[in-house]
């Protein structure tokens, strides 16, 4: 039977693992060295990893290929990388580093044909569209952290998801930014509306409090996976750093 994936999502900045709350760059906590942490995930046989370099986009720098290659070398599970990718050439170089999938967010807003171009070159299975949203007046709205202008028609979450699926995205990482890093639980109202209409695997991210909650949501909404951050880098909501995978 095909199983949904539980995906530790690690954020990186300047070569160090960090953790954010609501993706706020001013509330960053340092977690540690990426390669050491990844070896722990190997031992724990995790399903897949997302590695997002939040520094690469905000500083408008290219991906750090040397570091990505080093990290890929440590991972005996599929890895998706995002951060600073604005062209097909960069996406190809990331894949050549030993990464399975590239994650596109900011650049997809300024240049939506990038999804199509990357999918044509690398296959839709390697093309992950990352979508950040916030809930305002009970309506999910697409947002961009790095100031990419979003056309009005693309601010509607459902419209944008359908659009990027048609552009060739093979998978969608959907982050509720209000809940990211906040231990506030899965956004059921939004998933109830958008999950059933998806043509490609949907991965929910934001606020997941327990493995059990993640597994339930995978079944309830037929999700491709659930991405978790706090849950694998902190021992408890108020606790210290502990890179791990809770048993249940």
């Amino acid at each position: 039977m095909f199983e949904g994936r539980l995906i530790p999502t690690l954020l990186m900045r300047d070569g160090t693992l960090v953790k954010t709350r609501q993706f706020d760059k001013s509330k960053v906590a340092l977690i540690g060295d990426p390669c050491n942490s990844l070896r722990i995930f190997n031992e724990l046989n995790v399903d897949e990893l997302f590695l997002l370099d939040i520094g690469a986009t905000s500083n408008r720098t290219s991906p750090n290929y040397r570091l990505i290659r080093e990290i890929a070398c440590e991972c005996f599970m599929p890895v998706a990388y995002g951060g600073g990718i604005t062209s097909v050439d960069q996406a190809e170089r990331v894949i050549a580093c030993g990464i399975e999938k590239v994650v596109i967010n900011t650049a997809g807003h300024t240049n939506p044909s990038l999804f199509e171009a990357i999918a044509a070159k690398l296959g839709s299975q390697a093309t992950v569209a990352s979508v950040d949203y916030t809930v305002k007046r009970q309506q999910p709205r697409v947002i961009s952290h790095y100031g990419a202008p979003i056309p009005r028609s693309h601010r509607n979450l459902e419209n944008w998801l359908t659009y990027i699926e048609n552009m060739g995205a093979g998978e969608i990482l959907l982050t509720n930014v209000d809940r990211e890093g906040m231990w506030s639980g899965i956004d059921h109202p939004t998933l109830a509306v958008v999950a059933s209409k998806r043509k490609v695997p949907l991965i929910y991210h934001g606020g997941v409090r327990s493995i059990a909650e993640a597994r339930e949501a995978m079944v309830q909404y037929s999700l491709g996976g659930v991405a978790v951050g706090n849950l694998v880098v902190y021992s408890a909501p108020s606790g210290g750093v502990l890179v791990h995978v809770p048993a249940s």
Binding site: M1, F2, E48, Q125, G170, E171, P201, G224
Partner: peptide, 11 residues
């Protein structure tokens, strides 16, 4: 109805 490509772990 299942997504194509198949991406993930399978038995």
């Amino acid at each position: 109805k299942l997504p194509i490509p198949q991406m993930g772990w399978n038995t």
